[in-house]
Nucleic acid binder design. Sequence first.
DNA 1: CTGATCTTGCACACCGATGTGCAAGATCGG
DNA 2: CCGATCTTGCACATCGGTGTGCAAGATCAG
Lengths: 213, 213
Amino acid sequence: MTTAARARAPRRDAASNREALLEAARTILNRDPEASLDTIAVTAGLTRRAVYGHFPSRNTLLAELADRGAARVAAAVDSARAEDPVLDIALLGRLVWDEVEHVRAMTRVVVHGPLRERIGPVLGPIHERLVTDAEHAARLGSGRDDLPAELVARLIEGAAFTVLDESARADLSRTEGRRLVILAGLGALGLSWREAHALLEANRTLLDAEAHP
Amino acid sequence: MTTAARARAPRRDAASNREALLEAARTILNRDPEASLDTIAVTAGLTRRAVYGHFPSRNTLLAELADRGAARVAAAVDSARAEDPVLDIALLGRLVWDEVEHVRAMTRVVVHGPLRERIGPVLGPIHERLVTDAEHAARLGSGRDDLPAELVARLIEGAAFTVLDESARADLSRTEGRRLVILAGLGALGLSWREAHALLEANRTLLDAEAHP
DNA sequence: CTGATCTTGCACACCGATGTGCAAGATCGG
DNA sequence: CCGATCTTGCACATCGGTGTGCAAGATCAG
């Protein structure tokens, strides 16, 4: 950058160790979101002291982890969109679910903790899309009209988190999680369970392995 | 108890200070569940050191707080029961809501934190009642049949916590909270929003000031 | 092989929290 | 008023965590 360029390229295990730290943090924090830096370092095969050779502080590590996750979710969310608002909410559930189900226990902490503001640029648009869908569905008569769309969107988000908790507790399969997060979301939107069930039957791709309608 | 009886009755401010500590803990912990013992003591008009004259440890204080809340919830829950399972779930929502809405932020921490086992005897029966209602409703065709009753019960509980979070965020009124917790619960059970709405219209006492059907 | 780069192991300072000991003081009961 | 009871203020120990400094060693690039 400035005057003195590096005399030599960095050792190649520097990058791999850095990745190992992020990977270990992902694993450990998903088990215990309050885990100490030492636990993370040891899991990565390093010492706590060595961490500070890669990250200036604990928070920096966590921030980078959150950034990566947020980027993946953002890309997934932008990859597809449905015209019908009810279908779009189901689709949104599936897209987000696929990106967060492998960090189930961590998700709530990241979204509701101090890192929330950091991933705000990702969360905001998702929330707005839910609000738009909710009021669109209400106008069409397919979604509830007895609560403000803003509130409906929050109920749907809350339902998704409940499924996240439950799936971490009961160790649900990926497909079961998809189904559950969609059913719970549509229930919050005001659909009867038969309607939600029928929608899933009519759109089997929502549960399929790789679907980008 | 044993040989040496107290020479004199305890000072009357001992009891009142003890109550002040519990009251302060309720207030402070509801704002910040991680609040320090010092904050609680000062709020009660005492010193941190004085707390140990009433409680042997921080945890003891919290435990007594949880016990009192649990006792109130247990009494409320046992005060009424409806024949129809759907109506019973709505009723249950209202009964519990009225007892916990004044400690909104604290509820999730107590139920999901280390004090959970302490209030287990209260939580257990409520959960069982929800499960029974859910499978009963499924048999009648009024509740969802596409998920195990155990899971449906958890979704209903999760919906209630979502409403709790939202009500703390948006400072909803007591009545709005009642309505919301019932609607969210019935949505998780699989009712359409029109059905849920109709049920509330047919049972206005669910939202009334003092109803014991 | 040489030397830069990375890791380690120790040390330390710092922070915020809980829990105790003890003496002096304030407060209330009889 | 006397004395038991409660509160205070201080010091201290303990614990677990983060962040740094420094020297010695391991590791890898060239």
